[in-house]
Design a protein around this nucleic acid. Structure first.
Lengths: 330, 330
DNA sequence: TATGGTTACTAGCGCGCGCAAGTGCGAAGG
DNA sequence: CCTTCGCACTTGCGCGCGCTAGTAACCATA
């Protein structure tokens, strides 16, 4: 077609056009330490590179330097919390400023004959949750030097580390304040998020431990097919408040309650978690826990960059602010 | 095995360990055409490669061959239709089987100093919607040979090409069947999806063109802040059926209607689009258009691969099956 | 026996770049 | 005056791989 720039401009082209050696050009372009380049030359090189439209060939850079400047973020295969998207933007931007590219991937149980950590040879592989031992081994075996989190699932959960532990406490305390005493924890049957569900359930149980007047049913997983049954079970057992694992589960409970003619929140109060857009779309609108993580993305970027550069990791985590958005279901 | 394998195994290692030359090893590993390799040698090489845990260095491959075997999918910066996720899986898998890796990115208006198409040098850049002229130029300028779709936004839309044009017709016809005659098209004010909104609006208008007994209001954008006002406007104008741009907009309309004491569907019927999980969570549950695209991912993969290999593009598009899921709002 | 063709390889270049190890030169120091 | 040093560069190797251009050995003919 028109305007075919088939041949890319290389550093050698820049050097030749300037009557300099390739090395000098390289030194300027990389700010190589230990080299003294007069300002005049430096500027000539930069100007010529720009004029010719020079772009470094990253494959060659990766081959020569051994570092790809790629950071691979492995996303969980369950739907992300709504707010995660903005954190990803923040992360991507912060890495970009440092000259690193963020690539995200979602592993699928069946597939991916050749996972991206082999293809891309990222400097760092970053997971939102700890990797299981087998996958950790797999990633390490493919030559990736830095994996975050570095320990397999089991030990401390990364959700703990990121301080996302306030939600269930807020949900419970709010319901207690509203005068509810017999609560149910509505969990998700999705096996992929079993860890997170278990964590929130545990936190719910712990929060209620010191409240002798309150009771909790904590073993119910709610799905489309059993929501109606669960709601009537609960009502029969005197449950008057539901702590939902997340907003989706809360919506399921709410829907079943409304269809059964149960008044919400009078007969049954419901509190969700994550404050997805869904929460304010429902009628009645859903009370939910919103977690704002100022600088979460930037924090993850610092974590990854410190690993990539073998420098000290950030000392403090991101600021997290969890609060309950009270709406009509409670 | 359980040690720090700092140094990766190269093809030269395999060759040395076998007493062969690097070239022979290369020929076997690449199935290089025009080379005669006895089966015995071929097997020795493959076995030794496996034994040593050889993995090709993709940076070196990219440098030497000039092809990165990476396909970059540029996602829109507005939320994806729910079903897109499974198509992505399908796409990724199909590409993987062909030895290509799929990398996805979402460009952000402000950011990304160095976009991924420069860093990764993908063989193909794939967009879900046409690129605007400026971005198309930008991608081409960075040396990417194949961009899909190859034409800038404006001409034929990719949604057209993919045959996703049935939805609005189904919405309208369903409402007419239900005896509704005065319809409103509820659009989204989000400027990022203006093209898609305009397309669905246009299809709605066209479908109603031949129905002299039906009327349409097509100029209303619904947001959280004006949903209530819009609903009363419509009712005052005698509107009895709403064609929503998507399920989110439909939910907004539904919520406003319920709060205003409007009976749905008796006073106002509502039909959404995309059949997101939201649709069946609402009370009353939302009628919506579901679009199943058998093999959409595989089709996109074929499209990308044919470009990468400079072979003929697939002749027929994916099978798309749009149908209306009738629920309680209509 | 010379000729041609096939088989089973190997030698080695080049992809574009980072960077270590020079090299020539003018100026400062003795 | 000679030596040393810092400056402003250049030469050139190596990263791992794809692939062209051989080459030596072994047939199969004429």
């Amino acid at each position: 077609m028109a305007g075919t720039t088939v041949k890319r401009v290389t550093a050698a082209d820049v050097a030749r056009s300037l009557g300099l050696s390739r090395a000098t050009v390289g030194f300027v372009l990389n700010d190589t330490p230990g080299q003294t380049i007069p300002e005049a030359t430096r500027e000539r090189v930069l100007a010529e590179a720009k004029r010719l439209g020079y772009r470094a060939n990253s494959a060659a850079q990766a081959l020569a330097s051994g570092r790809s400047r790629i950071i691979l973020l492995v996303l969980p295969d369950w739907p992300l919390e709504y707010s995660m998207r903005s954190h990803l933007d923040e992360l991507s931007l912060a890495l970009d400023e440092a000259g690193y590219s963020l690539v995200t991937m979602t592993p699928h149980p069946g597939g991916q004959a050749r996972p991206l950590w082999e293809t891309l040879r990222p400097d760092v592989v970053l997971g939102m949750t700890p990797f299981d031992a087998r996958r950790l081994e797999e990633i390490r075996a493919s030559g990736v030097q830095h994996v975050i989190p570095p320990t397999p699932a089991g030990a401390a959960s990364s959700a703990d580390e990121l301080g996302f532990t306030e939600g269930p406490r807020l949900q419970v305390e709010h319901l207690l304040e509203r005068g509810r005493a017999r609560l149910a924890f509505a969990s998700s049957p999705d096996p992929r998020i079993a860890d997170l569900v278990a964590q929130r359930r545990r936190l719910t149980v712990e929060t209620l431990r010191n409240r002798p007047h309150a009771a909790l049913r904590a073993e119910d997983a709610v799905s489309v097919s059993n929501a109606t049954a669960k709601v009537s079970e609960w009502l029969a057992a005197g449950v008057d408040g539901v702590v939902a694992y997340n907003d989706d589960i809360a919506a399921l409970v709410l829907g079943a309650a409304l269809r059964a003619g149960v008044r919400v929140p009078e007969d049954l109060a419901i509190v969700g978690h994550d404050d997805t857009p869904l929460a304010q779309l429902l009628v009645p609108s859903l009370s939910s826990v919103r977690i704002d993580s100022a600088g979460l993305g930037r924090y993850l970027a610092d974590l990854a960059l410190s690993a990539a550069r073998a420098s000290a990791p950030p000392t403090i985590g991101p600021e997290t602010d969890a609060h309950l958005v009270v709406r009509e279901t409670s």
